[in-house]
Design a protein around this nucleic acid. Sequence first.
DNA 1: TGTTTTATGTGAAATGGTTCACAAATAAAA
DNA 2: TTTTATTTGTGAACCATTTCACATAAAACA
Lengths: 221, 221
Amino acid sequence: MVESSEEKKRISESTIHRLSIYYRALSLLEKEKHETISSKELAKREKLTPAQVRKDLSFFGSFGTRGLGYNVVELKQKIAGILGINRQWRVALIGLGNIGSALVSYKEFVRQGFNIMKLFDNDQRKIGSNHKGIIVSDIKNLESELKEANIEIVIIAVPATVAQYIVDNVVEAGVKAILNFAPINLRVPPDVYLRNENMSMELEYLSFAMVNNHTPKRVKI
Amino acid sequence: MVESSEEKKRISESTIHRLSIYYRALSLLEKEKHETISSKELAKREKLTPAQVRKDLSFFGSFGTRGLGYNVVELKQKIAGILGINRQWRVALIGLGNIGSALVSYKEFVRQGFNIMKLFDNDQRKIGSNHKGIIVSDIKNLESELKEANIEIVIIAVPATVAQYIVDNVVEAGVKAILNFAPINLRVPPDVYLRNENMSMELEYLSFAMVNNHTPKRVKI
DNA sequence: TGTTTTATGTGAAATGGTTCACAAATAAAA
DNA sequence: TTTTATTTGTGAACCATTTCACATAAAACA
Ligand SMILES: NC(=O)c1ccc[n+]([C@@H]2O[C@H](COP(=O)([O-])OP(=O)(O)OC[C@H]3O[C@@H](n4cnc5c(N)ncnc54)[C@H](O)[C@@H]3O)[C@@H](O)[C@H]2O)c1
Ligand SMILES: NC(=O)c1ccc[n+]([C@@H]2O[C@H](COP(=O)([O-])OP(=O)(O)OC[C@H]3O[C@@H](n4cnc5c(N)ncnc54)[C@H](O)[C@@H]3O)[C@@H](O)[C@H]2O)c1
């Protein structure tokens, strides 16, 4: 079989994270009625370097105008396309406890096209109740309901002890992207994308920095 | 003044994050009654390489025994010392909304020595109320109460619109470490450590990965 | 006690990511 | 219209991190 002609560039994770940063900055610039922005100015705002901004963007195309900079609205749309947030994503959240309930109310997710459409829990008092217009489903029906609703991304907000078991079912249901809040190293097949949100880790970094007088190259994203 | 004889090695952020991972893994191994662990086995468990584990640890000393591996309890304590979590930290949380309330109930923080001792809000209905044994303070008294309670770390959980203003006051009160949940790029002086917890960014990574069939080098921590 | 096996600790090599520096393109000014 | 000022896009140089590979040391075993 002939190799696809499409170039498969290896984009670094840092570049992807910075695209998120550019997107957020451009949203603000749009609100502030800026028509164009130079890599220099954008870098200054986000404490990065102009070269970094240009190099990041150059992996995906030439979006600027020499002598002028980038059109704010246009670049924002380009980045949205690259990140895949110029569309709606169907998201389910499992575990409606402290953190799960907070996430359901997080408006930023919806604004970026991440729509929580299904909620699951195993607590009888929670099943059937209404959260932000969504009826909480019984975890027993996880697989069938995930499939039925065509869920593409699942957020895990259950205790660490049951997280692997839940994830196995989520994978079984064909979901390819998982955002995990449980402080545990989950096993998923190679074709499933997994990201972990670990808040203790960030506090531990602060602790380390204070104890060791750490001098970071720059503030973490 | 003579330069301190203490070596000031530049430890990478990735190394620090992996120390957190090792710590969590070792806690589990301790529970599972493992007496020793090799870099090979530890790496396998956390999907890292043995060389990586050894190199990370070697920045801080020689903690292992050739032919045997590392003593679980001993290494765990060493890492706790390196990360600065073999002590108690005095933490304050500002903004008792959705995410703030969830964080107050997060037991993992306490387990690692991060004790939330002060809560602040500007909502009259919340001020004076009791959350997990802590009376919510009026944001008006922020500076004086932060100083009085000797707060070392502040968690920001207020709307992005007011976050910079709040942070300015926190910095004014002499706090040197901030964990920020507001989706905004905060300005702090160079001697203040700032970490951002940005959940949209992780979802955006998943979105990017799915749209672009991204092949990461390895799963992000 | 001697031999074999296991596993650390660490320079050196390889890989990956960031910054430099400049040609090329366009805008702005003259 | 020509000149000057900006600013992009990108190889090349640089720097940081990861992996390799092996000398060294201790454990396990005979
Ligand atoms: N609270 C926080 O601020 C916070 C922060 C970061 C990470 N986390 C992590 O997020 C997870 C949830 O934390 P929490 O504080 O919200 O805990 P919680 O106990 O308040 O919530 C857990 C929820 O999961 C549900 N649940 C339990 N077992 C289940 C199952 N088998 N199937 C479906 N649902 C099930 C429970 O009914 C409950 O509603 C934990 O892993 C925790 O470590 C919490
Ligand atoms: N809800 C989530 O899951 C989530 C996730 C990630 C990040 N965040 C971010 O965390 C922040 C809080 O989000 P939320 O959903 O909890 O919002 P929220 O509105 O529920 O809570 C905000 C809290 O801050 C308080 N507050 C407002 N202004 C204040 C001031 N000047 N001084 C002191 N307190 C003040 C409010 O009274 C409220 O209690 C936002 O920046 C949000 O973007 C939220």
